[in-house]
Design a protein around this nucleic acid. Structure first.
Lengths: 334, 334
DNA sequence: TTGAAAGCGCTACCAT
DNA sequence: ATGGTAGCGCTTTCAA
């Protein structure tokens, strides 16, 4: 069987208390015995049980990451940033895809509690505030990503999506577009809401007309469908999509209809995921610092865990506009 | 504080042994006490500590998933399949991106052992055989994905990549291509090796000439670079890339050089990740059942865990050719 | 059908 | 500087 502290205590002739001390660098230990113990550990190939350690009151060094779908380029990149940050500091991350389904989220939350995660990062948009507060009351550290809850003292790292929406609008406006369609995610999602408000804000006071898709959605298919409806209904010269997947859908809808991008119609995406780079024409998009978003969120969380307090800071990262091939001035009409 | 079995034992007037039994549905318990206990559990909001349970000899219900990079469309989709399979059966998955770096892999393997994962799926191509055998000797269940180790009794689920390579070659050959370039991943990776052999095999006995990229690589950049070199050196009419990312790079290299796909050059990818669908022209590619690959691997692993034996089965999934827009007959030369 | 008690492997407090 | 020991919360014989 695997060696335990007892084995190494026996082998060294010291007590398990001493072994534990050298293991954790706590208390005072003479150089001599420390050496002895370290040797025995080496010899016996001893490895500390994180489980026992956790049960005895230490951390599990594992954090749970709730996100809508790991198989979504945006969240895959976020997750990578999160994982790297965690790895640097000896933590691991448990990925939980909720598919925007409340019951999956609840179920995951439950397991994460059972498994005594040291902390949680919540990157799904809709966890009820009470749930979060209950969790925090139980001592679970929580950090929100791309979301904040007004008045609740929960640390969060976000991108300034209001600004991001503005950037998109300003770009289109400055190209001369005056009839712009918006393909949105559900506005109940905080980030989508902010993007929308930012966009609106930038158009305010101009003579531009904004048309918002009646329905909302997430993936490529949805983008294509919503763009189709929009195009059938309004004479827009530009379409803004609240994420790159929707924008890719828009591009596909255009192709199907023989609409040239950007000559006939300009398209702007949001996120700057891998998709926006490889599509043709390459998408003009508002870049979120996605990887960094994941990193910072997890660092904030680990800081809280290690200082034994609930993170309360709010970090805001800046978006930036990336102009590629999908935008141009509107076509000249007779 | 959180309630423990002691609390609910006290509240019910039974022993903790009894509580444990109703919790686990073991032993015989009268309906009456079971009800009482269940009630108390409800009232006190009791939740079993997975940590304590694991220490006392049960499973952790957590598995580790070693892969090169979660932020890679292929592995993100695999991970999703894995996560879904795990979720269905009450397991969680710890994502470990190794970046093909041996020391990261070793480091992760160590942590996973400390944390007493119930099992591991190894989807990185290069873990030394001895390491795997050591792990298995320690009682860690392991399943390999897209890889197998001849002679070692390790369960695995793979795609028939030899067949996949053939499919790609046959398609190109049947279109009439006779000078074909191959942009490969390092052949030390089992799947790449199989693809290559399959491709070769299909070309054997025909008058086709194959040119293999001297260097190998992984991402889009590499694909573009290797395609550039290939195109400069050989007069090929088709390029096959061992994964879709490489193929996307090939497409970019073509665009830069004004080479039309598929009119001037046909391009075939491998994997059928999201990338191959959204690129222009849409990529003809060999589809791996990616999501299914993740699912099956994890199910195989969980079966082993629950039957308390190291999985030994070898499952093979079938690839299939998906013809899209990037392939056509070779151009007619004078 | 139920319970007492001995662990699981480690931490931390209190003595020495 | 070192050790004894009481937990941490649960599982699992073995008795009753």
């Amino acid at each position: 069987m695997k060696a335990t502290i007892y084995d190494i205590a026996k082998a060294t002739g010291v007590s398990i208390a001493t072994v534990s001390k050298v293991l954790n660098n706590t208390g005072r230990i003479s150089e001599a015995t420390r050496k002895k113990v370290l040797n025995a550990i080496e010899e016996l190939g001893y490895e500390k049980s994180a489980i026992a350690s956790a049960l005895a009151g230490k951390n599990t060094y594992t954090i749970g990451f709730l996100l809508p779908d790991i198989n979504n380029p945006f969240f895959a990149e976020v997750a990578r940033g999160a994982e790297d940050a965690a790895f640097e500091r000896g933590y691991s991350v448990l990925i939980c895809s909720t598919d925007h389904r409340e019951e999956k989220e609840r179920s995951y939350l439950k397991t994460l509690r059972h498994k005594r995660m040291d902390g949680l990062v919540i990157a799904t948009g809709t966890t009820p505030r009470e749930t979060l507060e209950e969790l925090m009351d139980e001592g679970v550290r929580i950090v929100l990503m791309s979301r904040e809850i007004p008045g609740a003292l929960i640390g969060s790292v976000m991108v300034d999506n209001h600004r991001g929406g503005q950037l998109a609008a300003e770009h289109l406006l400055s190209l001369g577009h005056r009839k712009i369609g918006l393909i949105m995610e559900p506005l109940s999602i905080g980030s989508a809401h902010d993007i929308f408000r930012g966009f609106q804000k930038a158009a305010e006071g101009t003579d531009a007309e904004l048309f918002v898709s009646k329905e909302t959605g997430f993936g490529i298919e949805a983008g294509a469908r919503l763009a189709g409806e929009m195009l059938a209904r309004h004479e827009v010269t530009a379409l803004f999509a609240a994420n790159d997947e929707l924008a890719v859908g828009v591009l596909q809808a255009c192709r199907e209809r023989g609409i040239r991008v950007p000559e006939d119609l300009s398209v702007v995406g949001y996120d700057n995921t891998i998709l926006s780079r490889i599509v043709t024409p390459a998408l003009t998009t508002v870049a979120q610092p996605i990887y960094e978003l994941g990193r910072r969120t997890v660092h904030l969380l680990m800081d809280g865990i290690e200082n034994e307090n609930q993170p309360k800071n709010r970090e805001v990262l800046e978006p930036r506009l990336i102009v590629r091939e999908s935008t141009a001035p509107p076509p000249i009409h007779r």
